[in-house]
Write a protein that binds this DNA or RNA. Structure first.
Lengths: 226, 226
DNA sequence: CGGTGTGAATTCATTCACAGCG
DNA sequence: CGCTGTGAATGAATTCACACCG
């Protein structure tokens, strides 16, 4: 039976993908999927998918597969998507704006309750699709946190500002941070930080691209020598 | 001695962080760091850092530490940052624009050679800081690839367009893709895809936030019962 | 029969702890 | 003496392979 306690971190990181794929399937009217099908659509092996789902419980039917609608709900519940998550975004440059207008948030329980920036020229602007959500000055951070009680902050400021914004966010009592600034944030143990780093991702691709090229050369050389 | 062949994937993913931290230290004039210091600044344990660096070679000095400038160069070389990486960005919405204007790219050898979009209203616009880089129509993709020979494509389109853009990118001969669209891209084995998914990251945070809250409740209940 | 769920085997990553070098 | 580099120990994630159930 599903272990209930302690879902492995690697599994948690894949649940959002399964959730999205299942949601699509559901919208198209698919009622049932096998682990093989769902795995293919999610870009993982079927063994991995079954092991992942087994951590949530025995939600499949042997010889048949998984009920799409039921599974969507179970994953959503496990991830906490069935509740409302107020979020503040600090830093309203191109990236912050892109985030503010990203539809994927609202549909999954994430509700932007604050768009904050230190630049007076941006304050008061209406940059988001969200109804009447204007940019407020960074100094209103504490007020926003008191009023809307967001647990999650998104930091989309320039690198130089990130740590001090982070400190204020933590001081205001928030406990989860999604950091887009290219710096390693220092936080107390109780605060969870995840980072998304565009340059890092490109560098990892470059590494593999380089390795590929080098290896091709080796193969060619070796081939020539034979 | 450093194994030379096959640096572990987990290590590769951390090298960009070390590289950035070391670059900062170098700019501030620090000549030497210990594994302890560099590890702290990078948010990892010193044992992990030493093991990571050991895969590149024996670049430290016992009793002293690492020469900052030398190590920056070694990591850069390993990651392929010492060469020029032409990159195309497909999709020039807020996110694509944020990427186009992100300074961290140029400074690490990534050079944007194409900004492409299917929207005629965007074509011809000058959205990037980059000198004279105007948005071109998606149909020019093949031409851009032929002329500038980029290996890496960044996909920042809406979800609906991502797979067809991906297919064209692959058909044009590119082999590395950084995908920001919230879909699982299907590609041939030879093509490497990395994805950055904003909604996924928030969902992982929400999961932990929810767990934290649940556990707190348990602690409180248990405490009350004693 | 077909496909899930899962122990067992394997591979990959992290941590420990210390020998040995500068 | 201090700090690197690394085998050995531990832990986490993936893959295998098949018992078992609908």
């Amino acid at each position: 039976m599903g272990t209930r306690r302690g879902i492995p971190e690697a599994t948690v990181a894949r649940l959002p993908v399964y959730h999205r794929v299942l949601t699509s399937l559901n919208e198209v009217g698919v009622a049932t999927v096998s682990s093989e099908e769902l795995a293919n659509a999610s870009g993982v092996s079927s063994a991995k998918l079954r092991k992942d789902l087994s951590h949530l419980g025995s939600y499949g039917t042997r010889g048949v597969g998984y009920d799409v609608e039921f599974l969507v709900y179970q994953i959503a519940r496990e991830l906490g998507l069935t509740q409302d998550w107020p979020v503040v975004i600090v830093g309203v440059g191109n990236l912050g704006r892109a985030l503010a207008n990203y539809g994927g948030f609202a549909s999954r329980g994430f509700r932007i309750v604050g768009l904050l920036d230190a630049d007076p020229n941006l304050v008061g602007k209406d940059v988001a699709i969200a109804p009447g959500l204007r940019v407020r000055h960074l100094d209103e951070l504490e007020r926003v946190v008191r009023e809307a009680e967001p647990a999650i902050a998104v930091i989309a400021t320039p690198a130089e500002a990130a740590q001090s914004v982070c400190d204020r966010v933590v001081a205001a009592g928030m406990t989860s941070i999604l950091n887009f600034a290219p710096v390693v944030l220092g936080v107390p143990d109780r605060v969870e930080v995840r980072k998304v780093d565009l340059a890092t991702e490109l560098q990892i691709l470059a590494f593999h691209e380089q390795r590929r090229t080098r290896d091709d050369d080796l193969v060619v050389s070796a081939g020539g020598a034979l």
